[in-house]
Every structure is written in structure tokens, then in C-alpha cells.
């Protein structure tokens, strides 16, 4: 569904995306996991034709994003990281504009908009202006809008950023439901739980480079499914083991001066830390 080959985007001396080779298969939920500034949004902007790559290629559904933008634009629906709504329009008008832009006829429009607003739980807000809605509602409008032309591919740039736990679960549910109805989903996130809970496969991106790729389980298996945290000389040390039993055996073998021992399942955060030496949610991560 999405293929990129040596995709690269350079801003001045920042390499926002570097030599990205990626394949997102039809029907999967693919997660792009990385810290702030890793290059996630830049990748989405290239895929959605808003930004031109410096070099390399990208295809959506077989169409080149640079040379066949009009074909590509019909394939995807996108929810951008930032709000991108005309606040002077009502919810219904936002939906109707998008439906018109995608060439839906008036009867089809009415049916589809009603259906989608229902789907995202905003049927009662249809006549309210965007400016009056809460952040979570705005985000749901954006999701509904992205779906209007039945896209086969949905691109979601941090779909749950800034939402409370309940709103986040609601969006997750929606994503799963869409996927079960056949849509391919490409989402970016810097939330570990989100990637683990939703994605069939995860690509970890760091400083514009893809540094790991696989299902959450595969990625953890490479490290070990069990983690042991110990406190020694005021520093936390991590060790990974293929199983809980081996982890426990290791703990029992430790000398008594080692304190605060935790045995737990490993997670994608551990994978990320091991690969890069830093945490995913550690904030700004530009090159240099």
C-alpha cells in the first residue's frame, strides 16, 4: 500500500528523513514510533504530497507521490498532527466541503456525512461551529472528515496526542474498527502503549532513520521478553532475559547490596532505549 525507497528530506543541514525504506502492507495497522523531531510528520507530509522529498521515491497504491499527486490524493485520508479545521464553519459544513472536494453527489453526501458523524459520536454536534468544540471533538471531526471518500489508506499523525485516556480509547476503538472493515492504517505516535496496543507492525524511527522494524512481539523477542531493573550506585540498570524464569534466577543470584529489584515484561520503550541509549518521550531530538 505504501512503499518508500531511499526516501530522504533535508532541511538546511537537518536530515529530517534519511534513506527511509518502508513497506506498509494492505490491511495492516502500521505504527511509526519515534521521539519528537524524529521525522514522522515529515514522512506523512511527503506521503500526502504537501512536501517534496529531497531524493528517493514514495508510492501509494502504486502511484508516485511526486509525479502522480492527483491519483495519490484519491487513495488516502489523513488526520494531521495539528488541527486543520476552519473554525468559522459548522461540523456539518466542514464535512460537506470535504465531500464536495472529493466529488460526492448531494444525496450521497448527506447520507455519508450523517453516517460518519454518527460513527464518531458527533451526530448531536452537527450544527455547532468548530470553534465551540472541545479538543477531542475537533479531533474526531478530523477523523470523520478523513473517511468521507472511503479511503483505502488512512494516515494518522499522532491521532491521540493531547487527549484524555477515555478519548484516546475511543479513537483506538475507531481505528481498530476501520481496520477490521478493510482500511490500511499508517499511524505515527510517540506513545509506547499506543504502538503496542494497536499496531500489527512497528517501525522505530530515530533522527530520520528507521532503526528497527517488526511486530511489537518480534521486537521484544530480540531483546528478551522479561526485564529486570536493579538499583546499584544510584543508577538503574536494565537486563533482559528470554523468560520470567531466567529473570528470576538472575535476581536470586544477585548480591545483597543491589537494591530495588523489579522484574517485569519488557516493552517497546526498552527496545528503543537499547537501540538509541535514550527514551522515546525524552523530548526534542534534533541532530547534533
Amino acid at each position: 500500500m505504501i512503499v518508500t525507497r531511499n526516501l530522504t528530506k533535508v532541511y538546511g543541514d537537518i536530515r529530517a528523513v534519511e534513506d527511509l525504506n518502508l513497506e506498509v502492507r494492505p490491511g495492516e495497522i502500521f505504527g511509526f514510533l519515534g521521539p519528537n523531531g524524529a521525522g514522522k510528520t515529515t514522512t506523512i507530509r511527503i506521503l500526502t504530497t504537501l512536501t517534496k522529498p529531497t531524493s528517493g521515491n514514495a508510492w501509494i497504491g502504486g502511484f508516485d507521490v511526486v509525479s502522480q499527486p492527483q491519483e495519490v490524493k484519491k487513495m488516502f485520508g489523513v488526520v494531521q498532527q495539528h488541527l486543520s479545521l476552519d473554525r468559522e464553519l459548522t461540523v456539518w459544513e466542514v464535512m460537506e466541503l470535504h465531500a464536495r472536494l472529493h466529488g460526492l453527489g448531494s444525496r450521497e453526501r448527506r447520507k455519508r456525512i450523517a453516517e460518519l458523524l454518527d460513527y464518531v459520536g458527533l451526530a448531536k454536534q452537527a450544527e455547532r461551529r468548530i470553534g465551540e468544540l472541545s479538543g477531542g471533538m475537533k479531533r474526531r471531526v478530523m477523523v470523520a472528515r478523513a473517511l468521507i471518500h472511503h479511503p483505502r489508506l488512512l494516515l494518522l499523525d499522532e491521532p491521540t496526542v493531547g487527549l484524555d485516556a477515555q478519548a484516546r480509547r475511543r479513537i483506538w476503538e475507531l481505528i481498530r474498527r476501520l481496520n477490521s472493515e478493510g482500511a490500511t492504517i499508517f499511524l505515527t505516535t510517540h506513545y509506547i502503549e499506543e504502538a503496542e496496543a494497536l499496531c500489527h507492525r512497528v517501525g522505530i524511527i530515530h533522527r530520520g532513520r528507521l532503526i528497527a522494524l517488526g511486530s511489537p512481539l518480534e521486537l521484544r523477542l530480540r531483546l528478551g521478553l522479561a526485564a529486570v531493573e536493579t538499583l546499584l550506585d544510584d543508577r538503574v540498570h536494565y537486563r533482559y532475559f528470554p523468560s520470567k524464569e531466567e529473570a528470576t534466577a538472575y535476581v536470586q543470584s544477585l548480591p545483597p547490596e543491589v537494591k530495588m529489584i523489579v522484574v517485569r515484561d519488557s516493552n517497546l520503550e526498552d527496545v528503543f532505549v537499547e537501540l538509541t541509549g535514550r527514551k522515546v518521550e525524552d523530548g526534542e531530538d534534533t541532530e547534533g
Binding site: 504530497t49 504537501l50 492527483q70 490524493k73 494531521q80 486543520s84 479545521l85 470535504h98 472536494l101 472528515r145
Partner: peptide, 9 residues
């Protein structure tokens, strides 16, 4: 929201 126009066919 101008981006949305740019991403429409």
C-alpha cells in the same frame, strides 16, 4: 485548513 485543499484531488 488550506492544507486540506492542497491534499484534495
Amino acid at each position: 485548513c488550506f492544507d486540506e485543499l492542497l491534499m484534495s484531488p
